[in-house]
Design a protein around this nucleic acid. Structure first.
Lengths: 365, 365
DNA sequence: CTGTTAGCGCCTTCAC
DNA sequence: GTGAAGGCGCTAACAG
């Protein structure tokens, strides 16, 4: 079923059908009705490919490339993107690279083959030369989110991870800790490096020496993080506090703690990065650096929309948005549970209230 | 940059370039090399739309429509789909309807406009006549996952939720409970209804009367579930155990419990549906009905692939795969904590071990 | 108001 | 081996 078939059935020319379908150009009300009826009856749907072929990229498709959709951070990010995409009239296609640069490259190729209007991207790593050079040659606007590609200068939406990490580590220091370990993310990502840097800065600012053995790989994965914890806890002089570089690594730590009957705020202290929503409703009381994830996605998509529509502006100054992170203390940062169980619970409830407000705020984009 | 431009640069005809690009038809080694070089230098990427136009649907795109990507169940499902899609040579596009039938319809239209090869779908509800009739007229194979559309007979991958729910409720009964409430899912979805039915059957089998006031709406959402808990706990004769219809509703319950200083297995008992991974590493000990989510996505995609390739078979008998659910008991099903803290912890550790094995198995698809 | 024509970028005959 | 011609489904420009 094509536009020509419809035309024949309606005994008009294809262009008339086209005019009706696209609601441009004048058509007699009567023939219009007739055509629409036939379209309806035959359940004809125009071929978007053919349309965009003649019309230079008319399909409003954009892509979002994330490294791990299983990480709730990226799932929420995708929601933010999709909300904004909706409002701006795009179809957003979600690609999951699963932290695999090969897959990432394939998606970049697909993006180009299928003539997406723009790309939102959380790259796997920042130092992949193949993907980077491919990326830089893409004829469409690209907006980076959270992570970045080295030596490029794309638009982007980020958070200040150095500050976020620094605040977290300082909170641990203020609670009396000096033996603070970091389960770090891959140093091939911007957030991985920034969070290490923040950790460093906080230690330095307080005259605490940086100890190599306190910094272990977590790869933003719970498995690696679990192993990192094993190494840390086997040290002759193990840390008393952990700074965990993201939510996946936090889960790895929790797993270790549970298996070893250790409790946060009693046997060890900890601050994580990024929220793990459900934990707020448990007794885990994990303190964390919280970021406006939904909004990051939303704003990134809006930025992309700007770039797509104002093509003239495409070579203008890059726009880079930094959204603030918020340190949320729930108790796990404290050393050896100074407060009694009772008091702790109450504090937690107040926190929980704050959380709910924050939640709503985050959705209010 | 088009195939014609390349042809001119290489001083050959477009068809020769096409032959090189698609590696069909004979081309002299020398000119082949020359053409490839020019393609490389100019970073030319063929237009997939144009290609598929002449070639009847050559692009291997499939779509996955999920109601809520923020629900880790669907995120993991998407991973399973994408893994299989990869192996079978498809691009899988993920659409998030956010439980909105309007959005769902738009995606169905997009699927058709953009000539997807097939569709994997978790419909928002099963009784939307508009979307259903649209769906039934789609000229491509459709595989349902988890949920279903009423009065249709598509291929599908499901789990036996009646049995799953029944097992869960029986476990509560065996722990001495008779006042068992259900936070239910929408009855406009198959899982919502099946889990209610399983609940019913279990009560009946044990001669426990069904009490209207013990069954409250949870909508598969944590907010509604939280409110449901409020209503339940305000009853003159509140339940002693909760069966929660999915992971989102479980989170709502946990939120309520935390705010009211209630603990699972001490102040109230509970069994949920679907995993919440991170909880396994907390002290929450939430028992749950666990399903092989990743595999559900994986098998659904494989089934779709079959339907796409064996077009002859498309009108054959529908294939419906039912994957088993597994009841995992971690302690929250027990009444008034019969065991001491110590013993409980040990039990938990053994469970944790089993979980890890299950994890690996689930990935082993 | 409507039809005819040409062309979007590519592939596939069919000639040479 | 290679080129020319036609067509995929649709829209836009130009005639009427």
């Amino acid at each position: 079923m094509t536009i020509n078939d419809i035309a024949k059935l309606a005994k008009v020319s294809p262009s008339t059908v086209s005019r009706v379908l696209n609601n441009n150009g004048p058509v007699k009300e009567e023939t219009k009705k007739r055509i629409l009826q036939i379209v309806e009856e035959s359940k004809f749907v125009p071929n978007a490919f053919a349309r965009s072929l003649s019309n230079e990229n008319l399909i409003n498709n954009v892509g979002l490339i994330v490294p791990n959709i299983d990480n709730p951070f990226f799932a929420t990010l995708a929601e933010g993107v999709s909300a904004a995409a909706d409002e701006c009239g795009y179809n957003s296609f979600l690609f999951n690279t699963n932290e695999d640069v090969k897959k990432e490259l394939r998606f970049l190729q697909t993006s180009q083959e299928q003539r997406l209007r723009g790309l939102l991207m959380v790259p796997v790593v920042e130092n992949d030369t193949v993907n980077r050079s491919y990326l830089m040659r893409l004829p469409i606007p690209v907006v980076m989110i959270d992570r970045e590609s080295y030596n490029t200068n794309f638009d982007g939406v980020f958070s200040d991870d150095i500050e976020g990490a620094c605040n977290a580590v300082e909170a641990l220091i203020q609670n009396g800790h000096t033996k603070i370990a970091q389960i770090m993310g891959p140093l091939t990502t911007k957030p991985g490096r920034a969070r290490l840097e923040g950790y460093r800065q906080a230690l330095q600012a307080h005259g605490i020496p940086y100890r190599e053995e306190y910094v272990v790989e977590g790869m933003f994965q719970k498995e690696a993080s679990y192993e990192g914890m094993q190494r840390l806890m086997k040290l002759k002089d193990p840390p008393t506090a952990i700074f965990s570089a993201n939510n996946m690594t936090s889960i790895g730590v929790l797993k270790y703690l549970k298996e070893h009957h250790m409790r946060l705020g009693r046997d060890i202290s900890m601050i994580g990065y990024d929220d793990i929503k459900v934990l707020e409703y448990t007794d885990t009381n994990l303190s964390t650096v919280s970021r406006p994830v939904h909004r990051m996605g939303y704003e990134a998509m809006q930025l992309l929309h700007e770039r797509i529509t104002h093509t003239d502006n495409r070579n203008g100054a890059r726009k880079r948005i930094y959204l603030g992170a918020q340190l949320i203390l729930r108790g796990s940062e404290r050393m050896f549970a100074r407060t009694s169980g009772k008091k702790e619970t109450e504090k937690t409830k107040a926190q929980s209230q704050r959380e709910m407000e924050k939640d709503e705020e985050a959705k209010d984009v």
